[in-house]
């Protein structure tokens, strides 16, 4: 087990190293941020001085070398635009994004799995068909549209929920205050629709497959109660693909909350990264992508560990 963890850790470091190089190179090639940082009345002399102050007048190799030296000291450089340490800027925004993603995932699982089970047991019942129809719309309707419709109904017309912003924040999250919760409802719903539908459909397919297996028939024939057959024998065995997908989807959620964040003016990392790419703010882009790839790597690791609990046949 320890060997496995160390091995994974080593791979992760290599992955992040490669990512840093690629991103650094792309941002280096993308253009000169000083043209955007200085106002039109700046002189050529100001441009040269600013380039020097930011260290971007050096060759690519020199710049990357300086970057690696700083990384060794735990410093990813200062943002060109904000002037603050890049990692601080990213970490300041990360809780908002994580909060949204985690809540959306929890919501999707809590509703998606039971609804999927219900729809799988009696697939021909009217309620199963209704669930499947709703899940289809959850998958096909664009996030942007869902968000705007929610805002139109609950903020503009009814005035029940605030249309945007994060509300009161306590201990890095807005989930502990009433004002914060009111701000969370619509973004979390918007972000979960697709995930919920996906999880629901996967659960249903998985369950239907497992329910046809011989050991389920055997258990039923033995007289094991229906409830135990469904929720213990069948569900547990259909979980592996579900966990894999949830793992991947969670990474996706963190990395692609941008649309939801934009609609609800949610101060997460999605908006930050788009702004930073537009402003050619290389330190932020590099720091953000390193943090996100670390999250992906960590999730994959957790998913692998979870397999062993769900299915003892799997060995790490």
């Amino acid at each position: 087990m320890l060997k496995y963890i160390l091995n994974r850790l080593f791979h992760s470091v290599i992955v992040m190293f490669v990512i840093s190089f690629i991103v650094f190179f792309i941002m280096f090639k993308a253009g000169d941020p000083v043209q955007l940082l200085l106002p039109p009345d700046a002189t050529q002399q100001d441009v040269i001085e600013m380039r020097h102050a930011l260290g971007i007048d050096q060759s690519f190799i020199k710049q990357y070398e300086a970057f690696l030296k700083n990384v060794a000291k735990g410093n990813l450089g200062n943002s060109f635009v904000y002037g603050q340490p890049a990692l601080d800027v990213v970490f300041e925004r990360l809780p908002a994004t994580l909060e949204l993603s985690v809540l959306a995932m929890i919501f999707s699982i809590i509703f998606g799995v039971p609804l999927g089970i219900i729809a799988s047991i009696k697939p021909k019942a009217w309620y199963s068909k209704a669930i499947m129809f709703l899940s289809l719309s959850g998958i096909s309707v664009p996030v942007f549209w869902t968000g705007m419709v929610l805002v139109l109904i609950f903020s503009v017309l009814l005035g029940w929920l605030p249309s945007s912003g994060r509300g009161e924040v306590y201990l890095f999250t807005s989930a502990f205050t009433w004002d914060g919760i009111k701000h969370l409802i619509m973004p979390v719903l918007t972000l979960s629709f697709f995930q919920l539908a996906l999880i629901l459909r996967l659960t249903r397919t998985g369950m239907m497959e497992v329910m046809m297996q011989d050991y389920i028939k055997l258990a039923t024939a033995k007289g094991v109660p229906r409830r135990v057959v469904v929720y213990y024998h069948a569900l547990k065995n259909s979980l592996i693909p579900l966990i894999t997908v949830i793992g991947i989807q969670f990474g996706q959620l963190v990395a692609f909350t941008i649309v939801t964040e934009t609609i609800f003016a949610w101060p997460g990392t999605g908006k930050l990264i788009i702004d930073s790419i537009q402003n050619l703010d290389r330190p932020i882009v590099v720091a953000y992508l390193l943090v996100i790839s670390f999250i992906f790597v960590a999730i994959n690791f957790i998913v692998d560990i979870l397999y062993t609990f769900v299915d003892p046949r799997v060995r790490v």
Binding site: V151, V156, S164, T262
Partner: peptide, 15 residues
């Protein structure tokens, strides 16, 4: 409120 529709919604809803 950088998104145009969001900004409009915020003034319409009185936020």
């Amino acid at each position: 409120l950088s998104n145009n529709a969001t900004r409009t919604a915020a003034i319409l809803s009185g936020e």
